[in-house]
Design a protein around this nucleic acid. Structure first.
Lengths: 132, 132
DNA sequence: AGTATATATCGGAAATTATCGAAATATCAT
DNA sequence: ATGATATTTCGATAATTTCCGATATATACT
């Protein structure tokens, strides 16, 4: 398979996943660290880390390290590919993603160490169905 | 998972696949029947049929039956979602997809029964790697 | 140095998806 | 009706993906 076709498919796969799409949508609010996302979505920090890795590989997300924390943000709208722009436009209208962003706003209002220690402390998440 | 999030993910999955993306891209040329696509891409007709089913389920493709043939076409640009528009814009620039479309032009120049009987007659396809 | 904490990676079981030939269905042509 | 042909569905296997706890790594704080 040609390199560029493969790359396009990989970028599409990166967002064809509920958790990764939820993470992408959260980053519309501006940069967030791993633990803020984990707390907002109530999923294990390792799952968030993996989701972010894929989104980075796909070129949708940039990272900025600051001490212990790694802040992730969407690539700028000018650099965003046409389909990413279209996707974000559609994501903005999805109710569950809107709810996620509302919860993230509340999480952002807290100090980061408070949020992170809370995540560490959390008991394993009960799963509603197979695959988040 | 919320219904609308699930639906968006399903639509993304539908195009996160080399064969389905190639089929979608071919339909930029206008409507094509199953066997024209199978001949153009040199893949089994049943694989094309399955790809088209997913693209239809995702709402990207419409069908028009005419006797034995089922012609598939892209939904109109006005009905196309922002994401689909962006994707088609990117697909237009991918070399392998451009080559596919060039081959499809040649196939379209032939009478359909000629193309279809050729597809039926074809020996099984040698696979270059796992997953097309 | 030693402890705490944030993130990343690993391992591997479970779920999902991909693939294509074979069989089924639907329509056309005689 | 019979046979031909276009498309779809089925069945089964192989490949991939998902998921999360455990472990590793990296930085901060004392």
């Amino acid at each position: 398979m040609a390199e560029e076709l493969r790359t396009l498919v990989e970028r599409l796969k990166a967002v064809s996943h509920p958790l990764r799409l939820r993470v992408l949508s959260l980053l519309e609010l501006g940069e967030l660290c791993n633990c803020q996302i984990a707390e907002t979505l109530q999923v294990p920090a390792s799952s968030v880390s993996e989701a972010l890795r894929e989104l980075r590989r796909a070129g949708f997300v940039a990272e900025r390290k600051d001490g212990r924390w790694v802040f992730m943000s969407l690539v700028s709208r000018e650099l965003a590919s046409p389909f990413l722009k279209g996707l974000l436009e559609e994501a903005a209208a999805v109710p569950e993603l809107q709810q996620d962003r509302a919860r993230a706003q509340a999480v952002k209002a807290l100090a980061i160490p408070v949020v992170c220690s809370k995540v560490q402390r959390d008991a394993p998440i009960a799963r509603e169905a197979s695959h988040v």
